[in-house]
Design a binder for these strands. Structure first.
Length: 490
RNA sequence: GGUCGCGUGGCCGAGUGGCUAGGCAGAGGUCUGCAAAACCUUGUACAGCAGUUCGAAUCUGCUCGCGACCUCCA
């Protein structure tokens, strides 16, 4: 496998750059994972599915990728002030369980959804609670270096001090003065020195459910420090790719950069990648706006905004049809269009496996393969690649219709392309043909279609139509062609 | 208000200074006992105005509209 020249859009520089790993063939990639105090929401899924595609493509190119995606299971505060309960404690009180029961429940749910979307598990999935020591060590180092201060058991990052040496607003191209001007006034009893300062470690009230001992007393870590601590631990002080949703860039990632710089004196990340938001009827789907539906509701259609349920693979197909840096708008019409497109692609792949080779060739698959690579190499443009894959489907179907000719080598190449691009990289799978009894069903269907063809041969269309209509009612479509009949699950 | 992005044919959604994106839907055709599928053909597209250019949907400016971030969220 030759390494293809990959171009990545880097948020840090706001331009596309040639991808050159720090230590090829190794690639370190960190993606901000979910906060597991609630069901995963679909917007998160889009980010994780996008990075799954990115991970898959890097693997396909032959890179040895260490993909780290954290689970935030502590320290994420409810409000925008660095005070009050964290999300887990609040939810635990509400449900009258241990915070770690909350964590367990929603972590398992998250994994179920990720599996449904056919994402590959990350290489390491570290938790914040499992890395309290690393976080404390990092905070100590930041304090030692003079970029933080402690007030009554809470440690704050000193943004203004930091800004004297580093460009705090670099990731989102903002000036410090503008950031300060646009941040709310400090409250009267606020312990922070500066408006932009944020908590590294938060003092816990005695009744607080999740707290750990630290040099500053009992407390829990601030939200941003976990990613800095864990990415440093598993990927080093500087690593290749850091990803997450665009909404994280301004605050979470900006603070991550600051923490890592203040601790390690080096830029933590070479390429920052941000996925765009998922919208519903043009507005961002978000937890607070309440305009979202859960993955489960999407699959079953059990939500007022949804006309029907959509299979996970149809949804993944839909997401892959849009570039990861564009907003993606969910609507029933768009989802249904994607569903049909997905089915068409899967049907084409089935046809490919029944194709008969001919001695000569009228097709040029090499060019299509290269165009697929060109698309993916241009900042993971899965959308353009899929247009090429539909061209491949057209060729396959035309061959089946006798309008194109493919040799055995062509067929093998087409199968290889399908495996690489459709299954390995886009991460799609044909879930219609899944199931343990498939071999049995195949046998039964072969018999049924034989009987129907015999009826057709005798011009007994009453019987043949009855078979077709009845099968249709239970979700099996019969397709006739010159060479016989095939079937498909709807 | 600041930062950034977007506005493409009925819908979704790519894209490049001159060459077909693609999917869905629609129309016509081929095939078929019929249907479905498949294949072929096909339609008014690039928010508006002005400018740069031999040539712009693609570059520049302005106008209008939309969105994201700046506050927890991927």
């Amino acid at each position: 496998m030759t390494i293809q020249p990959l171009i990545i859009y880097n948020t840090l520089t706001r331009q596309k750059e040639k991808f050159e790993p720090i230590n090829p063939p190794f690639v370190g990639m960190y993606v901000c994972g979910p906060t597991v105090y609630n069901d995963v929401h679909l917007g998160n899924c889009r980010t994780f599915i996008s990075f799954d595609m990115i991970y898959r493509y890097l693997l396909h190119l032959g890179y040895k990728v260490r993909y780290v995606r954290n689970i935030t299971d502590a320290g994420h505060l409810e409000g925008d002030r660095d005070e009050g309960d964290d999300k887990f404690s609040k939810k635990a009180r509400l449900e009258q369980v241990e915070p770690m029961e909350i964590v367990q429940k929603y972590t398992l749910g998250f994994h179920d959804v990720m599996r449904a979307f056919n994402t590959l598990p990350p290489s390491i999935e570290p938790t914040a609670t499992g890395h309290i020591i690393e976080q404390i060590e990092m905070i100590k180092e930041i304090l030692n270096n003079g970029y933080a201060y402690e007030v009554n058991g809470t440690v704050y990052f000193d943004v203004e001090k930091y800004s004297k040496e580093f460009n705090y607003g670099q990731l989102t191209n903002r000036l410090l003065e503008d950031l300060i001007a646009n941040t709310r006034e400090l409250g009267g009893q606020d312990e922070k020195h500066g408006r932009l300062d944020f908590a590294l470690w938060i003092k816990a009230k005695p009744e607080h459910l999740m707290q750990w001992p630290s040099p500053w007393g009992m407390g829990f870590p601030g939200w941003h420090i976990e990613c800095s601590a864990m990415s440093t631990k598993y990927l080093g002080q500087t690593f290749d790719i850091h990803g997450g949703g665009m909404d994280l860039a301004a605050t979470h990632h900006t603070n991550e950069v600051a923490q890592s710089q203040a601790c390690n004196h080096t830029q933590p990340v070479k390429y920052w990648m941000h996925t765009n938001m998922l919208t519903v009827n043009g507005t961002r789907m978000s937890k607070s706006a309440g305009n979202g539906f859960l993955p489960g509701e999407l699959f079953t259609g059990n939500h007022p905004l949804l006309e029907k349920g959509y299979a996970p693979m149809a949804v993944r197909f839909f997401m892959m049809q849009t570039h990861y840096r564009s907003t993606l708008d969910f609507s029933n019409e768009a989802l249904q269009a994607a569903e049909k497109g997905f089915q068409r692609m899967m049907a084409g792949i089935k046809v490919l496996h029944s194709l008969k080779p001919s001695g000569t060739s009228t097709v040029d698959l090499k060019t299509i393969r290269q165009k697929c690579y060109d698309a993916m190499n241009d900042d993971f443009n899965s959308s353009v690649m899929m247009a090429q894959l539909f061209e491949l489907m057209r060729i396959i179907n035309s061959t089946n219709d006798g309008k194109e000719k493919m040799t055995q080598a062509d067929i093998d190449e087409a199968k290889s392309m399908v495996q690489h691009f459709v299954f390995d990289i886009l991460g799609l799978k044909d879930d219609s043909s899944g199931g343990n009894d498939n071999g049995l069903l195949d046998g039964v269907m072969q018999l049924v279609l034989e009987i129907r063809n015999e009826a057709k041969a005798k011009k007994d269309f009453t019987v043949s139509d009855k078979i077709r209509n009845s099968l249709n009612q239970i979700g099996i479509t019969v397709k006739d062609s010159k060479d016989g009949s095939t079937w498909d699950k709807a």
